[in-house]
Every structure is written in structure tokens, then in C-alpha cells.
Nucleic acid binder design. Structure first.
Lengths: 132, 132
DNA sequence: CTGGATGCAAATGTTTTGCAGCATG
DNA sequence: CATGCTGCAAAACATTTGCATCCAG
């Protein structure tokens, strides 16, 4: 069987051409497949993990139990749309003052955070609105 | 093999006696086992899911891929301690003004949210501090 | 030639479901 | 005696790993 070379590069390229999208491993595999490649699932997995390890890509686990991958960049948080199931980036609502206040109030030391809002993305929200 | 009656009631009871703790299914099973019962894993799973469906219990998926269950109550968010792996409740840092601002800025409709901070809980933070 | 990447298959870890028996109302 | 709960076993799912092979440098 023909090999698919440079999978991780292809992943970065693919992600770059679809800015605001979080990819499951399956998404990545089928996305690469459309680009002519037909990589093995394990290879996609390993390439994705490599990119995560390198810091080029972020891995997120949603409540549906499947991991999503997205290009690393400026920090943002996410809205998991209950309409279309997309994971939409939203600006981070936590400022350092708030974070510090939380640390002071609870005695914890906060490093990172992950926020996932549930709701409707702007598209689904529009559609719901126009039907009302 | 003897049956363990009323597993879901036992779960609620168990959780009630250990306020701030998020339970994996395994935690629940061994917790119940210490109480004299020795329930089957599937039964624990089904009881937990039932409680979630009833709204008595919340289910959370962390990045380690294992679900945690905790008593439903006043909303709060969580810190996943990188020291002791506990999931510690912290007050919610998102107020309605901020949430509305986010909706206005992005056009989304926000329902719920889940925030998971990563860092050190107050206990682990203290220990780290005293070693410095 | 050598190390890193890939394909394939099989293992893993956790969650979920099928089915039969028990027990409570 | 009907309905729901439980135990046990096996399936389902997404992920992860072992191993042989391939390819670029």
C-alpha cells in the first residue's frame, strides 16, 4: 500500500486552510483523504500527538468523549454549539485580575484554564431567531 | 452472588458524606464497597447515569478521559490539581455581565459553561510553598 | 546506512449494552 | 406478578502500542 508522506505537515496545512475548526481524528483522516492522501488512522493519531507535543496543536476533550485538535495560537476559549456541534472559538472572558482574585479567595495556584460554553453559535443562533 | 440493593441511593449517600469530591466510576464502586456493598461496575455505571438523567448528579469529563460525578448543587467551576489530581470546586468567575458581553461581541447564545482550571489546590500549593 | 514516519493489526481503557435473575411494591 | 434493579459477560468506542517496512537525508 502506498504510503502517505509527511502527515503532520499535511495536518498543519489542512488546519491552516480551515481556520476556525476543531478536528477530531476522524475529521483529520477524512480531510487528508480528500487531499489525495489516505493515511492510516494510527498515523494520523501519531502525527497529531506529535504536533501536540511540539506545541503546534492543542488537544481538547469535550463531553462527548472525543478529542478535538486545533492549531495553537492566541489563547481563546470555546463554545460547543448544541445546534451544529461545532466548537467555535470565543475570546477568553477571564482576565488576570479575576484569576488573581480567585487565587486569593481559594488559595489555589492557577495555571491554565479551559472554558467550554454550551449554546448556539452565531449561525445557529441566527437561524433559530429567524424561525421565531 | 448477593445483590446490592438501592445503589443509586447509596451513591447519593456516599457523595453526601464526602462533600467536595468528584468521583470516577471506580471511586464510586470502591467507595460503595467499603460501605459493605460490593456492587457490579455496570450497576454503578447505570445508577450514576440515572442520577445524572434525574439531575441529581453532574457528570464531568476531564482531559484524562475519565468521567467524574459529583452531587448537583449550586453552580461552581473546578480546578484540576496537577499535584494530587483532585477536582476541587472553585467559585464561578463568570458573571452575567461578562457572559452577556461575550454574547454581544460574538453573536452566540450562551447556555451553560464548564471551566476547568489547571494548577495546584490550596493543599498542594501550601506544600510546594513550604518546600521553597 | 540510520532514524524517523507509516501501515496494519492487535491491545488497551473506559464506557455501554444484552440478557437473565432477583426483589420490591 | 409486573416493573425496575442488579450481576455477569460481552460489545462498543475511541485511543494507544508493537512491529515490520519504507523512505529521506
Amino acid at each position: 500500500m502506498a504510503r502517505t508522506p509527511r502527515i503532520s505537515a499535511a495536518i498543519v496545512d489542512l488546519m491552516g486552510r480551515h481556520e476556525h475548526h476543531a478536528w477530531t481524528l476522524e475529521d483529520l483522516q477524512s480531510g487528508l483523504a480528500e487531499g489525495g492522501a489516505a493515511p492510516n488512522f494510527s498515523s494520523v493519531f501519531r502525527a497529531a500527538e506529535k504536533l501536540v507535543a511540539e506545541g503546534a496543536v492543542l488537544k481538547l476533550l469535550l463531553d462527548d468523549g472525543r478529542a478535538r485538535f486545533e492549531l495553537a495560537g492566541a489563547h481563546h476559549d470555546h463554545l460547543h454549539c448544541t445546534g451544529c456541534d461545532e466548537l467555535v472559538p470565543v475570546p477568553c472572558p477571564i482576565d488576570t485580575a479575576r484569576s488573581s482574585a480567585l487565587e486569593a479567595a481559594t488559595g489555589v495556584e492557577i495555571g491554565e484554564h479551559r472554558i467550554v460554553f454550551s449554546g448556539l453559535c452565531s449561525l445557529c443562533s441566527d437561524q433559530a431567531g429567524s424561525r421565531r
